[in-house]
Structure formats: C-alpha cells, structure tokens
Design a protein around this nucleic acid. Structure first.
Lengths: 211, 211
DNA sequence: TGAATTATTGACCAATTGGTCAGGATGAGG
DNA sequence: CCTCATCCTGACCAATTGGTCAATAATTCA
C-alpha cells in the first residue's frame, strides 16, 4: 500500500544527492524558460552532470518537471491552509498576505515556474487546480463570508479578494524583472515597501464601514 | 527620414492581408506557448499557410515575435498615458483601473504574451521596459505624489500603487485558467464582479483619511 | 495577351532535442 | 581482494525545428 503510493524512494546517498542537484538545476532552467523552452542539455549543464546521467535518475524531462510542479504546489498552498478562524479576522488575512509576499521573496523561482505553467494554460496541472486548490479556496471563501456576515470584515467578494492577494504578492516574483527595472533596485530592498503598501491596501479594504 | 523609421510598409493587398493573418495566428500560438515553445509549423497551420510562405512575409520567427511585442507594448501603455491631471484624482485612477481591466478582458492573448515575456526575464523587451515604460511610470508617480501632497489622495507609495493595479487587473487575463477553474465560469461573466471589487479596493485605499 | 512582378510550394538541409544502449568506472559489503 | 550492484558515459538515433532555394503558380498591368 505504502509502496504503491510512493513507489520509489531514493535508496543510496548518491541518489539522494544527485536527485536534489538535478531538481535544483531544473528549477533554475524551467522557471526561466518554461517547459518547452528548457532543454535537458541546459539542465544537465546546470547540474554538472551528463545528459544520460540525468535520465538515469529521472525517466524523462516530463518526470522532472512534474515532480517539481507537485512539490511546488503544496508549498504554494500552505499559507492559505494556515488561515483559520482562530485569530482576529483582519489580522488573519493580513498575515496571509504577508506570508504570500515572503513566499515571493524567498521562492521566486517556484513562483515563476507556477506562473509559466498557468499562463500557458496549465496543461499538466489543471486537475490539481480544479481539485484540491479549488476546494481549499471554496473553504476559505466560506470562512471569509462568515466574517463578513458577522461584520468583522467589510463585505467584499471573497473570491476576488483571494485573487487580488495572489496577484499583488506574486507580482513581485513573477514580474521581478519589470519591478526592478522600474525601481532600479537590484536587491530585494523593495519588499519592505511592498509589504507596507499591501498592508495599507488590504487593511483599508477589509476594515468594515462605521455603522 | 520617414522611410528610415518605417522601412517597409506592406505594398500589395495580399501582403497586407497575409501579414495580418500571420500576426493573428502567431499571437494565438506565442501567447499560449511562449517564444521558444511556439513553432513555425504551428503558426503556419493556424494561419492556413505553408511554412515557407510565412518566411516569405517575415524574415524569421524572431521577427514575427518582435513585431507582435512592440505593437502590443504601445497598447499596453496607452491607458497609463491617458492618466493626467485634468479630472478628479481618485476617479482618474479608478478609470485607469477600469481601462486596464477592460484590456485584460478584451485582449487576453496580448496580456499573456507580455506576461510570458516578462516572467522569462524579458530577454527581448528589457530595453523597452527600462526606457519608455520606466519613464512614463516615473512621470505618473510624480503626479500621484503631488496629489498625495495636496491631500487629494491618501499617502501611499505611488510605485507600488501602480504595481498593484497592473497585478490585479492583468491577473484576470494571465491566470484566466485558474480564475475560471475556481469560479467555474466559462465566460467573462466574472469581469463585472472583478470590476466592482477592484473599485472598492482602490477607492478604500486612495480615499484620504479624515483630518 | 503577354511580360514582369509577386506569391506559393515541395524538397531539402543543418542543428537541436529527447531519449537509448552497451559497456566501462566506481562504489559497498564480505 | 573479489564480487555485485550502482553509477556514469560516449556514441548513437529518430524526430523536430528554423530556415533555404529553385521552380511553379497567380497577379498585375501595359
């Protein structure tokens, strides 16, 4: 049973190390070139391995990409999972924004890989989106709606609220070239400003109108 | 002089028609596959022409792509150009948001093509971004800053304001697959909701605090 | 109509790409 | 030290891809 779900675990140290090296290099290449744009030769070069050696550890280019995508998606969803009814609603949502922004700062390649996949029609991840992702969003929007009914946050469309959080936070990873070209900041210095700005925006949006 | 700036204008009717057919088909293909992912065969098939015939009208794959990109960029920037000091500041900015959202609804392929290019590091449009685009943004942020000083809009970072407008509006084109998977709306029906939501967000963000 | 210009194509090419395979190198365990 | 499994590679392959070219078809226009 276990074996059926996770058919292969790396056995030797070498396997462990090389699989990781490959995935790391592949993330670099796939995130800037997209699936079709990336070549095994590029990945092999980036990993410091020969192309046949890549294919000793992974059955195909597709397999590398798919593995990256699936591990990526869980991490992408994690912050949303953490949103629950325990704390102050507005602070809860603002924390989510903050976590997503940190995600963009700390894992920009993952964000770009995901962006590439979605922009191009999500050909190999659509079922994940229509399944788990959609369900979790449905869950959280229900929670947001409760909060709105109870007057704890302003009455805004919860789906579009989530979209706007995704859009504004991911922007700093996905469009970082543009952001840096405009701000002429070559480090991550602008993330602090971005956070301050987004806190203002979402606090203003979510604070209920005075009765 | 004129000729130097626009070295080649389509001469015959056939040229006019076929160049347009090709660009239209190429927009379809490039926007969903990215530059490297797209093939001349795909574009030729989509255009209903033979591959050598494509290359009779355009010198290379690159040339088709570049032509699309440059015409696209001007249209992308147009709405920002239209923002000036003539009207009420908040309404002026909200109009900009509305126009950008309409752009996403009416020209999603252009938006995705642009997104593809930027996500992948803007290899063939970076100078356009560092030049004209950045200058216009610098212009408009200066205007926003004046408005903020004068107390006509809230004091928010004008650069991040613009980023957030781009991010939230383009999201509906670039990530339309995701949006539609979550909302399960297969038409553009959600654009009206998105507009209402974004109007709320930016009005709340820009309305100055009561003194 | 007929000559000149423009449009179109099949056949072809060199380079690239994902992937295979037989055999050799390098470990780990006894 | 020997053996066996793991690891690695050069050489190779078929398919794809951007692009060329000579020859043919269609238009244009006098």
């Amino acid at each position: 049973m276990e074996a059926a779900l996770r058919p292969e675990k790396p056995r030797t140290r070498i396997q462990q190390r090389n699989r990781e090296t490959i995935l790391e290099a592949a993330l670099d290449v796939f995130s800037t070139e997209g699936f079709r744009g990336a070549t095994l030769d590029q990945i092999a070069a980036a990993a410091g391995l020969s192309k046949p050696n890549l294919l000793y550890y992974f059955p195909s280019k597709d397999a590398i990409y798919t593995e990256l995508l699936s591990t990526l998606l869980t991490r992408w969803l994690d912050p949303l999972h953490a949103v629950d009814g325990s704390g102050d609603p507005i602070e809860e949502i603002l924390s989510y924004v903050r976590r997503k922004l940190e995600h963009s700062r700390d894992f920009p390649r993952e964000s770009r890989l995901f962006a590439n996949e979605i922009v191009q029609g999500a050909p190999r991840i659509l079922d994940q989106i229509e399944g788990p992702l959609r369900h979790m969003v449905d869950d959280k929007t229900a929670l947001f709606r409760e909060w709105a009914e109870a007057g704890k946050i302003a009455k805004v469309d919860p789906y579009h609220l989530i979209f706007s959080i995704w859009a504004t936070t991911q922007h700093y990873a996905d469009f970082s070239v543009q952001v840096q070209a405009i701000l002429q900041s070559y480090e991550d210095s602008h993330f602090a400003d971005a956070e301050a700005f987004l806190m203002t925006v979402f606090r203003a949006t979510l604070t209920p109108a005075k009765t």
